[in-house]
């Protein structure tokens, strides 16, 4: 049994996918999008840490701006390297899901 619902690769995949979908977004909005999509077990701490880690790898870039409430907000977008990396990860994920699905379907009950 897995200790956590998400491994590091899956966290990166879903967070980068949200950043890609929203084009330009910030940590809290990423967390909200994941929660609203029903992605459970991935808290804001993990999202923010993931974004920092991805920025350190050059897969996202950020800029800090002031929001309407006067607070600083750091906006993220995928870099070109991030888009390429996300494409690879999504293809690998799709292949993994298809493989698992074929095994599950073969042993389907009822």
């Amino acid at each position: 049994m897995r200790e956590e619902p998400f491994g590091g690769g899956t966290v990166d995949l879903v967070v980068m996918s949200v950043v890609r979908a929203q084009e330009r977004t910030y940590g809290y909005a990423v967390g909200r999008a994941l929660a609203e999509a029903g992605v459970v077990g991935l808290g804001e701490a993990a999202v923010y840490a993931c974004l920092r880690r991805l920025e350190g790898r050059g897969l996202v870039a950020s800029s800090a701006e002031l929001a309407d409430n006067g607070r600083a907000r750091r906006y993220y977008r995928l870099t070109d390297a991030g888009v390429a990396h996300l494409g690879q990860e999504q293809r690998a994920w799709r292949a993994h899901i298809d493989a698992v699905a074929s095994v599950v379907e073969a042993g389907r009950v009822g």
Partner: peptide, 23 residues
């Protein structure tokens, strides 16, 4: 990271609300 997260969240009215939302 903690400071950035808390700075970007909408303000909460109570401590309990914050803990309920964020752990």
């Amino acid at each position: 990271i903690v400071a950035a997260n808390l700075g970007e969240r909408p303000p909460v009215a109570t401590w309990d609300q914050l803990v309920a939302e964020l752990g």
